[in-house]
Design a binder for these strands. Structure first.
Length: 227
DNA sequence: AAGCAGCTAGATTTGGCGGC
DNA sequence: GCCGCCAAATCTAGCTGCTT
């Protein structure tokens, strides 16, 4: 990873205030990591209710958020900052430190989401929706945009060849399946619609409408219907 | 329709361990 | 010391529901 992120900080985690791996237990313990949903319990909800609410997130997400929270509180601990009651500036400084190590916009969003999950709202709103936080994330996206491969991950020629190999049948006997496969492919590649959008399209007569003069035609999506 | 926040799956990296 | 294997840790692109 270091080779991919030349900006990643060097030096001792203790002196630099950063941990590339698990922070020492004494540090984690010293900063007093608040459990997920602690602020919900503090608001008066029972632990049973809070635990049920927390199940809304997948285990992998909860584990990920927990680790990000530990990193954040450890970072606060090194700087003698309160990881529970902090101004937005603390979050921004933390994000800046992470951004400086080479992390991208996507990863910073996870950090913000994790902090928001463990922390009570800042000024009545989620940490992730704080104007300065959102502006920071926008800047991160602009300064370090995602690297997208210009090479297609699929080969158009292979797809076309496969479509050509579908069983050829006389027009009056062409199977619905063959026709559907070709139609769906052409629609998908020409419209760039999401899978969900394509799945919601229907060609039922009641969902096909034509504007006066046959100038325009509309396909009205209906959830749960198949093309 | 477009943009956004939150979420997740999958890819990548790291670290530990045993065998040679 | 090197290699291969495996699991855990970490990162990130992209999906989806929601809002504007």
């Amino acid at each position: 990873e270091t080779s991919q992120c030349p900006l990643r900080q060097e030096g001792s985690p203790l002196t630099s205030g950063w941990y590339d791996s698990t922070p020492p237990p004494e540090v984690v313990e010293a900063v007093g990591v608040a459990p997920e949903g602690a602020h919900l319990v503090a608001s008066g909800l029972s632990t049973e209710v809070v635990e049920t609410i927390l199940q809304s997130r997948a285990p992998s997400t909860r584990k990920l958020y927990a680790w990000k929270w530990i990193l954040f509180t450890s970072w606060c601990g090194v700087r003698q900052l309160d990881p529970v009651h902090f101004p937005v500036g603390t979050v921004l400084e933390f994000l800046q430190a992470r951004f400086a190590t080479g992390l991208t916009h996507s990863t910073l969003k996870v950090y913000v989401a994790a902090i928001a999950a463990f922390h009570s709202p800042l000024g009545g709103q989620s940490v992730g929706k704080h104007p300065l936080v959102t502006r920071f994330l926008h800047s991160a996206l602009r300064l370090r945009p995602p690297v997208r491969s210009r090479v297609p991950t699929w080969d158009l020629a292979v797809v076309l060849e496969a479509l050509c190999k579908l069983p050829f049948e006389p027009l009056e006997e062409v199977s619905d399946r063959t026709l559907t496969l070709k139609a769906v492919f052409l629609l998908a590649i020409s419209s760039l619609k999401r899978v969900g959008d394509l799945q919601a399209l229907s060609v039922a007569p009641s969902h096909l409408d034509f504007a006066p003069g046959m100038a325009k035609a509309f396909l009205y999506p209906r959830p749960g219907t198949l093309l």
